[in-house]
């Protein structure tokens, strides 16, 4: 997890796997996630721009992209089992991206922890 970089809007990016997801803090705030809307393979994502959203029973939140690039893979498991995000937010990656550039707003895991400390 320490290898991950974060946006203040609670998304993580793994440079190792080129994957994007939402943080454990975010899943906890949202509560039981019931649905995830993700882009399709081949679509472009842009750093700092929403690419999808997550729904709980009584709320919906946009997911912002930490990187710019083209979506190469989408985690289809989340369509039938969005609860995977609640179970392990860092294993439940959402999209894999062929990255062209990375957001300048990304912060380290330690800084993100500091930010979300209650």
């Amino acid at each position: 997890m320490s290898k991950l970089k974060f946006l203040k809007s609670h998304e993580w990016y793994s440079a190792e796997n080129n994957t994007v997801g939402i943080s454990d803090f975010a899943q906890h705030e949202l509560g039981d996630i019931v649905f995830v809307e993700l882009p399709e393979v081949g679509e472009n994502v842009e750093a700092g721009v929403a690419f999808g959203n997550v729904e709980s029973v009584k709320a919906v939140s946009e997911i912002y992209s930490p990187v710019s690039g083209v979506v190469t893979e989408v985690n289809e498991d989340l369509q039938s089992a969005p609860e995977l995000i609640n179970q392990d937010a860092y294993a439940a990656w959402m999209i894999k991206v062929k990255v062209s550039s990375v957001s300048e707003e990304l912060i380290s895991s330690a800084d993100y922890d500091e930010l979300t400390k209650r």
Partner: peptide, 12 residues
């Protein structure tokens, strides 16, 4: 599926 609706999603 209320998260689709106006009281939650508002303008979206």
């Amino acid at each position: 599926l209320q998260a689709r609706e106006q009281h939650i999603r508002r303008e979206k």
